[in-house]
């Protein structure tokens, strides 16, 4: 047994993928690519359980174009003796790993939430309404990991060796043009310990900003939104929590003016403590909330924010 873990150079670096790989057993080699690979390698070499770090430092790998990265992964897998290849089920892993799987003639296993054994894994299907346990017959397993389902490993005193990866230097006609990333000082939604999410009950963008953000500030929380709120233009798409957005599992999730559609619940139902504030006492969100408050959010949330600040 031997795992290759392909990590984005971040931030944030999804180290919990390493925890998933450690459940399989055997040494763990990390592959990093792009001009930030060397700096990222120094950090990941400190993480417990990492045996070796491979870097492909060419700037050709910046922006993680799968046309270049998938052949890089495939070449390093062919040249090594890996039985497992892991990546996060983030925009990065979803885009790149299936292409590498096709090059290696492997049927990938997507978005796992648990490792049962070296060839058997657990993954949600039907938007989390069904949990499947699947066994792979492929000689090499390619796997993407739901990062919120695994804890981060310790980053204590390890110092794994760093070496150059095999670099096939494949050309591509695909060009990166630009990116428009939402800039924020807040914790990252995917890994925050606390999340405050707003839904259609906020009525408009102005109210969303005025009601949700002060509570998030008071609790040091990330801000999320339901798909209804995103579609209505109250919040940016990158804040969407749900089956079609981000899947989060913070210690505290506060749903404000969110009714609790199945597709939203799929994105947050694994949170430790769920709070719902909604004026509709029959909203389905109350069926899963640990603490529910039936109230007009325009009164209740500012009061809550004020009392938490004190």
């Amino acid at each position: 047994l031997s795992s290759l873990v392909v990590l984005e150079t971040g931030p944030p670096a999804p180290y919990s993928v390493l925890t998933a790989a450690s459940k399989v057993g055997g040494p763990i080699t990390v592959l990093l690519a792009g001009s930030k690979a060397s700096a990222a390698a120094v950090e990941v070499a400190k993480v417990d359980g990492v045996s070796k770090v491979l870097t492909a430092s060419s700037a050709e790998y910046d922006h993680s174009l799968p046309e270049k990265l998938a052949p890089l992964i495939a070449e390093n897998v062919k040249g090594g003796s890996y039985t497992h290849v892991f990546a996060s089920a983030s925009a990065f892993g979803k885009n790149v790993l299936p292409r590498a799987a096709a090059l290696l003639d492997v049927q990938q296993i997507s978005d796992i939430t648990a490792v049962e054994s070296e060839d058997t894994f657990v993954r949600p299907i039907y938007a989390g309404n069904v949990i499947a346990t699947v066994k792979s017959k492929d000689p090499i397993k390619l796997i993407t990991v739901r990062t919120s389902a695994f804890p981060n490993p310790a980053t204590s005193g390890n110092s794994a060796p760093i070496e150059d990866a095999v670099d096939p230097a494949v050309n591509s006609q695909t060009a990166f043009v630009s990116e428009e990333l939402t800039k924020t000082e807040r914790p990252d939604l995917g890994s925050a310990k606390r999340v405050i999410s707003g839904g259609r009950g906020l009525k408009d963008k102005e109210s969303f900003d005025k009601i949700i953000y002060p509570l998030a500030d008071a609790l040091g929380a990330a801000v999320g939104a339901s798909r209804a709120a995103v579609d209505s233009g109250f919040a940016d798409n990158s804040l969407q929590v749900g089956q079609t957005g981000k899947v989060v599992a913070p210690d505290l999730y506060v749903a404000v003016g969110i009714s609790g559609a199945i597709q939203h619940l799929a994105g947050m139902k694994d949170s430790k403590t769920i709070v719902a504030i909604n004026k509709d006492a029959d909203a389905p969100i109350f069926e899963i909330a640990d603490v529910g408050l039936v109230a007009d959010l325009f009164d209740a949330v500012p009061e809550l924010t004020g009392k938490i600040k004190n």
Partner: peptide, 28 residues
């Protein structure tokens, strides 16, 4: 031909709500 075998399907663990409170103070 298939490379994966579905060993079993199950329902996700059901989450049951913890009930409602009647004020912001009770919520805190």
């Amino acid at each position: 031909s298939s490379r994966l075998e579905i060993l079993s399907l199950s329902e996700p663990p059901k989450r049951t709500g913890g009930g409602k409170v009647d004020s912001v103070d009770a919520l805190i």
